[in-house]
Structure formats: C-alpha cells, structure tokens
C-alpha cells in the first residue's frame, strides 16, 4: 500500500513539473533578437569609452593626466606639451588600449571636466585586435557617434539635433530620485 501511495505521489509530482513546463509558454519570448533588434541599454552602462568634443569643436580634455594615473589596468597613455601661447597644455597623444581596458569607469570618475565618458556602444568585436588600440581619433569618433553618454560629474548628456550638448532631465539621472524628493520637499515647505 505504501509503495502504491509513493508511486502515486511521484507520478503526481512529475505531472506537476510537466504542467509547470507547459504553462511557462504563457510567459512569452524573452529572447532579444539582436542584431535585428537592439537591446535597451541604460545610459549609465559602461560598454565603451569615448572622448567628448564640444559643439564648437574644441576638446573638453585639458590633459590633466588624472585618468592616466587612476587607471587600474594602466592602459591610458597621454602625451602633452606646454601650450606655447597662453596657459594649459596641448594634447599630443591620447591612447587607450581597449583590449586590456576592463571598463571599470575609474577614469571617467577621475576626469575633472567629464571629457572621457562611458558610452553604450558595445559592438567592439573585431577580427584584428590592433583596431582596438584606440587613439584620439578613434575615441573622438566614438564620442561623435554616441547618442548619449554618462559621466558622474555632469550625469547623462546627449547631443540634440543642432549638435549642442545637453544634460538629460532629472528623471533619467542616477540619483535623480533624491534630487526630485528634495525639490518636492521644498515645494511642500513653501
């Protein structure tokens, strides 16, 4: 008798499992049809690095070497010379070895002027690793192609149709919640 009840229980549990499996079809498809359909990547996501050029064509980077110093993988190489006329430096060379970079975004955090930023372009696959030894032209191009980018100082930014750089609204910024709450508090105080 015991055997029969046990067998019945086992069969019932197997049946339950089979029901779970067949009911799962209701949950729909969860596959992303990449490359036919691009995945939605949040703006803070660090998929690649880029250098930002202002709308008037000047580099944001002031060659302060902060990013080079902070990089854990030591893949940033910057060469600069003193600006012969006026203050500051002239950027001679700005290389990032994107093969050995580990996309930790420490350089982005260190940059005082948000010149180096994280972008969401993850399609870095290539047949030739040499193409990933990025120089300044490469990084500028990445920055020009990016729809939006992120840096902790300025938050999420994007280029509007006129080519001007704008900061995204507060709702899309990390930390925006706290800011909005603060504003709401102030309004309720008034």
């Amino acid at each position: 008798m015991n055997l029969i009840t046990e067998a019945a229980k086992a069969l019932r549990d197997i049946g339950k499992g089979m029901a779970v499996v067949s009911r799962a079809a209701e949950k729909g498809k969860h596959t992303n049809l990449y490359p036919f359909e691009m995945p939605e990547i949040p703006p803070v996501s660090c998929q690649s690095l880029a250098l930002i050029i202002e709308a008037d064509g000047t580099d944001r980077c002031v060659s302060c070497l902060a990013c080079e110093k902070v990089c854990p993988s030591q893949v940033i190489t910057i060469e600069r010379t003193r600006n012969p006329e006026g203050k500051g430096f002239v950027l001679e060379r700005f290389d990032i070895d994107l093969v050995n970079c580990m996309y930790c975004a420490a350089c982005v955090e260190a940059c005082p002027v948000s010149a180096i930023v994280t972008i969401q372009d993850f399609e870095l696959s290539t047949y030739d690793l040499q193409t990933l030894k990025a120089d300044k032209a490469f990084l500028d191009e990445q920055g020009r192609r990016a729809k939006q980018w992120y840096s902790p100082k300025l938050g999420v930014e994007y280029r509007n149709e006129q080519g001007e750089i704008q900061v995204a609204p507060l709702e899309q910024q990390p930390g925006g919640e706290a800011e909005l709450l603060k504003q709401a508090d102030k309004e309720s105080d008034n």
């Binding site: 036919f36 290539t126 040499q130 193409t131 030894k133 120089d135 490469f138 191009e141």
Partner: peptide
C-alpha cells in the same frame, strides 16, 4: 605599433 583607423563598417551590420 601600426595604428589602424576606426573603420566605417566596424559595427556588425546584420
């Protein structure tokens, strides 16, 4: 190192 410029078709276009 030979530096190869960013090719226009670097992205995998399906």
């Amino acid at each position: 190192l030979k530096r190869i410029p960013i090719p226009e078709d670097r992205h995998f276009k399906p």
